[in-house]
Design a protein around this nucleic acid. Structure first.
Length: 812
DNA sequence: CCTGTTAATTTTTTT
DNA sequence: AATTAACAGG
């Protein structure tokens, strides 16, 4: 075809793209037109193939970068792919579309929002909000949460959307079934609510995209035409809606390349359909299939173990990973007495490996993987005791933290006064003398009058039933108005504006006050998180500026026109959108030297020299819930396969005979997956993985002799390293020291937002003047996040706790 | 209206 | 064990 019209790079340069690739990889890179399925086993150089293929299309095939669409599942994967392609083809790669399903479809949906009945400025709501809306709907329909668990109802709605089953069809399918009928009613109300507040949840983004394309042939046609080449990574994790999107978009040119590994499909619980990859050959008759089976990551033993485990699954494409590497070290299996012994052993092994004379092992090349987040807790004590720097991933995401979500809700309500969801979140935060009954009345009036809840507050005096709290409600509405005016005046930097909101809203003061009361030092310092949000805002503003400069110098996709404006309003709008789509994993700076603790799910796609897989016990892994179905066990087995194949050189698998599960000490048998690993690959410590599955937590073996390590049995010795404070209390010297709370994003706390204030040399005992409270004396000073909380006794007799910078203190 | 108490409830995760 | 929701009392 017209593939080789233009040659953008010298041919010899293009040929370089094939260098160092094995025949299958090279074939995948060179494949010209038509559907292509790449079955890429773990560690088979998948990312390399995708990036080289894109580069090949551009430099050798003369394909315009803007005609290429590459879809990944995470922002992190997208960012990595982007930078690796850029290395290969240079700056023109910026015109490619690389992103997640959601980020790309949101761009398209904003452009055509009116076609699916939304305002262009629609908001994306997160899981928390979704749950809340479901609860509200249940309450309104008088359905007891006892029989209709919000979580279950929400997940039913979510899967319906993922399967492209709309409200009407769901109701039809429910038929006369009482329960399904009620869920259908919740579904209907839920959608109504979201639409009224101009919000979409994550599932809607996909559902509405499919609808947009199906109902608007002109729109579909434009994008079909534009994307001549489409690549989808992690195809085994696509759900039905994503499958439809890919099929719709690629129907014109049929240049669809999907990459995946059915053995690594571990997201069925969120709608991923493994059948999508298994059936690709049926969907695209005559497609090219390329298997990448040579593994470049792991040693022979690790790979053999992985193969042995996954072999037990039925319903998978036949393949077998191999390596030209040697067998390497045996896998070490530990049968510990309990979790503390397990932790001590691991910590001992880590410090032994790192501190051994001449060792080139680094903390950063090690990871501890587990099935459940709860298991990470046990390890912390042991790691800290040994002075091992570590970082726990997962659990709470930064943007999911309460204090962050509160600020975001303020910002959203400022932007969109009709955002009732945000209103609900912050009307009582901080406490302002508005209680449950008042809120209920406001909600009722808003519904009756067809006004937004904020509007009702502003006009509270008009309603007799709100007579008593009217002043407070109006005050709240006025504050939001004031903040909006400030936004429109546009005289602050972006981060400065957010800081302004954090203070004016009273959120900061509220945290200070609460801290006074419970004076337990929060392990997660909420003030520090709020400061961190400011650093993020600075970074965001800078990134956006760069992007705009790039965009101005070249062609601009219609979806990106809003980049041209840089007033506070539009910067804030896109910042809020990013907050909904952004997770902490996205910002793991890889060169930091610490051990990583993560779930197996979040370890997918990563690799480590040494991997510790902990808690390999029946009931935990596979989880007790998996026993209900064969399919669930198979998914757990794939999870085990993913875990094992993360290891490059050395794999440890550890178990405890007894463990605290849900506050109860239980006796834990060895996981069936471990028993599938052949004897010759494994070295056992502390007991056999085969026998010894008797019940009863007590064992008379009395621990174990460490086969190769001494440090484990020296619990008394504490090595102090600076890194130990990664998980400990943040220590910040005031003024001007960087925050230590989140080591990964060690952006200095002195952002442009906070730089305005000079570093003050305040001390306990200093006399100060405050604009409002007058003269006073500092009775205590606690550094926090490059600022400080000061307690001041004023001459009036009052004692106040304030943020030093915001208080604008004058030293006397 | 707010705050302190008891009772109940537990995968995995991204977007 | 630990977090979180419902509930009673100031």
């Amino acid at each position: 075809m017209d593939l080789f019209d233009t040659i953008a790079l010298p041919p010899e340069n293009a040929e370089n793209l094939l260098q160092g690739l094995n025949p299958q990889q090279a074939e995948a890179v060179r494949h010209a037109d038509g559907p292509l399925l790449i079955l890429a086993g773990a560690g088979s150089g998948k990312t390399r193939v995708i990036t080289h293929r894109i580069a090949w299309l551009i430099s050798r095939g003369g394909v315009r970068p803007s005609a290429i669409l590459a879809i990944t599942f995470t922002n992190k994967a997208a960012a990595e792919m982007k930078s690796r392609v850029e290395e290969l083809v240079g700056p023109e790669s910026q015109y490619m579309w690389i992103g997640t399903f959601h980020s790309m479809m949101i761009r398209i949906l904003r452009r055509f929002a009116d076609r699916v009945g939304y305002e262009r400025s629609f908001a994306i709501i997160d899981t928390d909000d979704q749950q809340k809306v479901v609860k509200n709907c249940l309450a309104e329909l008088n359905l007891p949460e006892k029989t209709f668990a919000p979580k279950a109802v929400h997940s039913a709605i979510s899967s319906a959307k993922n399967d492209l089953v709309g409200v009407e069809e769901y109701a039809r399918l429910a038929g006369n079934d009482y329960r399904l009928g009620k869920i259908a009613a919740v579904y209907r109300l839920y959608q109504e609510r979201l639409r009224k507040s101009n919000s979409m949840d994550f599932d809607d983004v996909l559902y509405e995209s499919v609808r947009l394309f199906k109902e608007n042939p002109d729109v579909l046609s434009e994008y079909q035409e534009r994307f001549r080449y489409i690549l989808v990574d992690e195809y085994q994790d696509t759900n039905h809606a994503q499958y439809q999107l890919v099929h719709l978009l690629s129907a014109r040119h049929r240049n669809l390349c999907v990459v995946g590994d059915d053995d690594q499909s571990i997201y069925s619980f969120r709608g991923a359909n493994i059948q999508n990859i298994l059936d690709f050959e049926k969907d695209f008759k005559g497609c090219k299939v390329i298997k990448l089976e040579q593994n470049y990551r792991s040693t022979g033993n690790v790979l053999d173990a992985a193969n042995a485990v996954i072999r037990c699954n039925k319903g998978r494409k036949a393949k077998k990973l191999w390596t030209s590497e040697g067998a390497g070290e045996p896998i070490t299996f530990l049968r510990a007495e309990n979790h503390s012994e397990e932790g001590r052993y691991i910590a001992g092994e880590i410090s032994r490996m790192v501190t051994r004379p001449g060792s080139c092992q680094r903390y950063r090349d090690m990871a501890i993987l587990y099935r459940l987040n709860a298991l990470s807790r046990n390890l912390e004590a042991a790691l800290r005791e040994h002075g091992i720097p570590y970082r726990i991933f997962g659990g709470m995401r930064f943007y999911d933290r309460k204090e962050i979500k509160d600020v975001i809700a303020y910002l959203r309500l400022i932007l969109i006064p009709s955002d009732d969801l945000s209103f609900d979140r912050i009307i009582q935060v901080p406490k302002r003398g508005i209680g449950e009954t008042t809120v209920e009345q406001v909600v009722a009036i808003a519904a009756r009058e067809g006004l937004s809840r904020l509007d009702v507050c502003a006009r509270a005096a008009h309603y007799p039933e709100l007579a008593r709290p009217a002043a407070r409600l109006q005050q709240f509405a006025e504050m939001i108005d004031r903040l909006r005016d400030k936004l429109m005046i546009n005289d602050l930097g972006f981060a400065e504006y957010i800081e302004y909101v954090e203070n004016e809203s009273g959120l900061i003061q509220e945290i200070i006050d609460q801290r006074e009361k419970s004076r337990e030092n929060d392990p997660v310092d909420r003030i520090e998180n709020l400061k961190e949000l400011l650093s993020d805002a600075v970074e965001f503003e800078n990134g956006r500026r760069q992007l705009r400069e790039m965009a101005e110098s070249g062609e601009l996709a219609p979806e990106d026109r809003d980049l041209l404006t840089d007033d506070l309003f539009s910067v804030l709008s896109s910042f809020i959108e990013r907050a909904a789509l952004y997770s902490e994993m996205d910002e793991d700076r890889e060169n930091q030297d610490y051990v990583r603790l993560l779930t197996i799910h979040s370890a997918k796609g990563l690799e480590f020299g040494t991997v510790f897989l902990i808690g390999a016990e029946e009931g935990l892994f596979p989880g007790y819930r998996a026993n209900e179905s064969e399919a669930a066990i198979e998914e757990e087995r794939r999870l085990a396969y993913v875990a094992i194949t993360r290891a490059k050189r050395k794999l440890y698998i550890t178990t405890a005979r007894s463990r605290l599960v849900f506050g109860q000490t239980q006796s834990m048998p060895v996981s069936r997956f471990v028993r599938d690993i052949p004897d010759q690959l494994i070295e056992e410590i502390g007991g056999s993985r085969l026998g010894d599955n008797r019940l009863g937590g007590y064992s008379d073996e009395g621990g174990f002799g460490y086969a190769h390590g001494r440090s484990g049995d020296l619990p008394g010795r504490v090595t102090q390293t600076p890194a130990a404070r990664f998980a400990g209390t943040p220590s910040v010297s005031f003024p001007g020291a960087p925050a230590a709370g989140r080591p990964v994003s060690a952006a200095p706390a002195a952002t442009s937002a906070t730089r305005a204030a000079e570093p003050m040399d305040l001390r306990k005992g200093d006399q100060v003047r405050h604009a409002k409270f007058g003269l006073g004396r500092i009775t205590s000073l606690e550094p926090v996040a490059g600022d400080a909380i000061v307690v001041i006794e004023f001459q009036s007799g009052e004692t106040k706790r304030l943020m030093a910078r915001m208080a604008k203190l004058e030293k006397i």
